[in-house]
Amino acid sequence: MERSGICIGPRWNFIDEHFWLSSDKLKTHLYFRQFENKSTWFPAFGADVSDIKIGKKWLLNTAVHGWIQPKNMEFTQSSGKPGGAIDVTGKYCLSFLNKSGLKGLSANIGLIIKSKGFLLEEMNMGDQIGARLGVSVWL
Rank of each mutant, 00 (worst) to 15 (best):
A44T: 03
I54K: 09
I109D: 00
D87H: 08
E17S: 12
H29I: 03
S22D: 11
P82E: 15
L105R: 10
K114H: 14
G117P: 00
T76H: 09
W67D: 02
A63E: 00
S136Q: 11
L139F: 13
I68W: 13
E74G: 05
Y92Q: 00
L105M: 15
H65S: 04
E2K: 12
W58D: 02
L59M: 05
C7L: 07
D16M: 07
K25Q: 12
L120S: 11
V88G: 04
I112W: 09
G55T: 03
R33S: 03
N13Q: 09
F19K: 07
K114P: 03
S22Q: 10
D51P: 04
S100A: 15
K103W: 05
G83N: 05
W41R: 15
K103D: 02
G134Y: 01
T89S: 04
L30G: 13
K116Q: 14
F19Y: 07
K81L: 14
K56L: 00
T76A: 15
L30T: 07
K103M: 06
S136I: 08
A44G: 02
D127N: 10
R33H: 06
S39G: 11
Y31T: 03
N61K: 01
G80W: 11
F96P: 11
R11K: 07
I113G: 12
W138N: 10
R11P: 02
K56N: 04
L105I: 15
E121P: 08
F75Q: 09
K91C: 00
S39R: 14
A85K: 06
G101P: 11
A85R: 12
I129V: 13
Q128E: 13
N13M: 11
S39Y: 13
G126T: 12
L26P: 03
P82Y: 15
I129M: 13
W138Q: 06
K99G: 13
G9E: 08
L105C: 10
K53T: 02
N108A: 02
Q128R: 03
